[in-house]
């Protein structure tokens, strides 16, 4: 191991401090016994207990998870289909336009997406609620899925599918038993991306949510406007913990899989 220069040590410390000190403060204050958010009153876990009693937060959490699961699944199916068509169907009239249009929502300001969806739902008379949030989230996260999946599709060896046909598969059978298992990692990460985007979306959800369907980000945002409560800190800490565990598990698993595969390939060639 090479020793780091003092310049590198400083920049590393600064960078990580910049990223993590705000979160660290939030986590520390979630264990604050005092009701005043900015004054330390000793260690306590009482806010976690109170959080579990708070029906409004629990409802909002449930709505968020429901919306996330349904919308990301819809987005994954549609996004995979779009990626398939864009990568596979070769040149057709308007292909460039289509592929440009599928990426456009990535750079579109959320406010505009939210507003246009709101106008659409009002004009077709769809009452705002969980359904409209699901539709809205599926709409904007679909393009993220299609970006992830189409990059995998581009490097997919077409002869694998031809081999499947050659061995007697029909089109759907070939997709189900050869293509899908091979692109599965991309589809899964597309789904996870869509789920995460849905979980932390505030802007589009506030345009499309109804009075009875508040998602967690909306709930947190509106209660913070009335003053930060230690309960919010506790809730945020739980979310941070879930995300951290998820990310660490995912990276360890994939790292192990890569190392295992490399070792096996080396053994196979000797």
């Amino acid at each position: 191991m090479r020793r780091m220069t003092s310049f590198n040590v400083v920049s590393l410390t600064m960078g990580f401090a910049f990223l993590y000190i705000p979160m660290l403060i939030l986590v520390i204050y979630s264990f604050n016994a005092s009701k005043l958010v900015t004054v330390w009153g000793g260690f306590s876990t009482k806010w976690y207990g109170e959080l579990l009693q708070n029906e409004a937060f629990l409802d909002a959490a449930w709505v968020t998870i429901k919306v996330g699961l349904i919308s990301s699944t819809i987005a994954t199916i549609l996004g995979t289909m779009a990626a398939f068509v864009l990568v596979r169907s070769g040149r057709f009239f308007g292909r460039t336009l289509f592929s440009g249009m599928i990426y456009a929502p990535l750079v579109m300001p959320e406010v505009i997406t939210g507003l246009s969806l709101l106008l659409l739902f009002i004009s077709i008379g769809l009452p705002r609620g969980v359904t409209t949030i699901v539709l809205a989230h599926a709409t904007f996260s679909m393009c993220y899925v299609s970006v992830v999946v189409s990059s995998r599709m581009a490097s997919f060896d077409r002869s694998l599918e031809e081999a499947a046909y050659d061995l007697g598969c029909t089109g759907w059978d070939a997709f189900k038993s050869v293509t899908l298992p091979i692109i599965a990692p991309a589809v899964i990460s597309g789904w996870l991306l869509a789920f995460t985007l849905s979980l932390d979306d505030l802007v589009i959800a506030s345009f499309t949510a109804g009075p009875a369907s508040t998602t967690l980000p909306i709930k947190i945002f509106s209660s913070v406007r009335l003053g930060v409560s230690p309960e919010i800190n506790a809730l945020s800490t739980i979310i941070i913990a879930i995300v951290t565990v998820g990310v660490i598990t995912a990276s360890i698993t994939s790292k192990r899989a890569i190392v295992k595969k490399q070792r096996e390939e080396q053994m196979a060639d000797t």
């Binding site: 002869s159 031809e162 081999a163 050659d166 091979i182």
Partner: peptide, 13 residues
């Protein structure tokens, strides 16, 4: 008719 592909096209999974 069956074909043996240049890349072998073995199903990796």
């Amino acid at each position: 008719v069956n074909m043996m592909f240049q890349s072998y096209a073995l199903f990796p999974h």
